[in-house]
Amino acid sequence: MQVMFVLIGASLLVAIIFVVAFIWSVRRGQYDDLHTPSVRMLFDDHSGQEKIDTNHMKES
């Protein structure tokens, strides 16, 4: 039964990874605009436009 502690630890670790990923995505601005990406993804051509780095936005 002692192996349960390892499993519980592992599950908690996975959960924490997801929380960190969530916080990272919020801070990166992925939740700032929830509408436009849904329109943008339907366009066929992606000619390699340089994405705006939202991290710069925080500095200003």
Binding site: A15, V19, F22, G29
Partner: peptide, 16 residues
């Protein structure tokens, strides 16, 4: 942003 993060954290804690 901060509200999303607060909810995310609370939801994570709640579930676990």
């Amino acid at each position: 942003k901060s509200l999303y993060m607060k909810i995310g954290l609370a939801g994570f804690a709640f579930g676990n």
